[in-house]
Design a protein around this nucleic acid. Sequence first.
DNA 1: CAGTATCCCATTCGATACTG
DNA 2: CAGTATCGAATGGGATACTG
Lengths: 124, 124
Amino acid sequence: MTKVKAASTNFANKTALAEECPEVYAANIIGGQWALVICSWLINGKLRFSELKKRLPNISERMLTLQLRKLEEDQMVTRTVYAEVPPRVEYELTPIGYELKPIIQQLEKWGEKHKQLKDATDPF
Amino acid sequence: MTKVKAASTNFANKTALAEECPEVYAANIIGGQWALVICSWLINGKLRFSELKKRLPNISERMLTLQLRKLEEDQMVTRTVYAEVPPRVEYELTPIGYELKPIIQQLEKWGEKHKQLKDATDPF
DNA sequence: CAGTATCCCATTCGATACTG
DNA sequence: CAGTATCGAATGGGATACTG
């Protein structure tokens, strides 16, 4: 008998915790690998898929698509498809997303400062 | 011949990008699954390992250890070991970590508000 | 242009057992 | 108390090919 595996307790737990804990909730949304960076570009206005991709040179198309879908699901961005040829899709922050603007800007400032401090401390 | 595998290009890319991009840098530090939540507890003062664990009921000891080590490496927290029996280890934010305090607090407020909006919108 | 689908290796992470 | 070590399952994420 090789043991019965516990299924995805993890997901259930995290969801349950998010119900009660705003930081966990926030972390689930902006804590992804790319969410914060994508939002930091979108706070300056709507962008097309290809424009985002240009600004995120290290992301694969697949990842960009997945992350945008997740942000959409989390009601952070809206996705607008224009029935044109060639097709055009624009992404824009929702009002909820725009409310992150001051936070993201502070985080950028913090990141810049911290980065310098660390670079200075850590010559490697 | 089965193809030569690309090694960890991913890590190199992200590191290179972080050099130039404060949001990527910030996301790498506070964007983890638990970093933000851990910091949100530590902004109220130092805590022991077991106290953190109590406040993060869904995290495994292994994960808590790994995340704290990463935060230490990122110079976000200090780890102080007291040579006592039983052993005691305290974690505290560094000055750089404490600078996140207003940001974390805003993020909490945002999370709370957003959560309610989403709960109201999404009856599921 | 803006994706979707599939394949598959790499990393993450929980469970469990053990230690100073 | 505060970890470390190890092992599999689950997930992440790149490469590539294809589509409306």
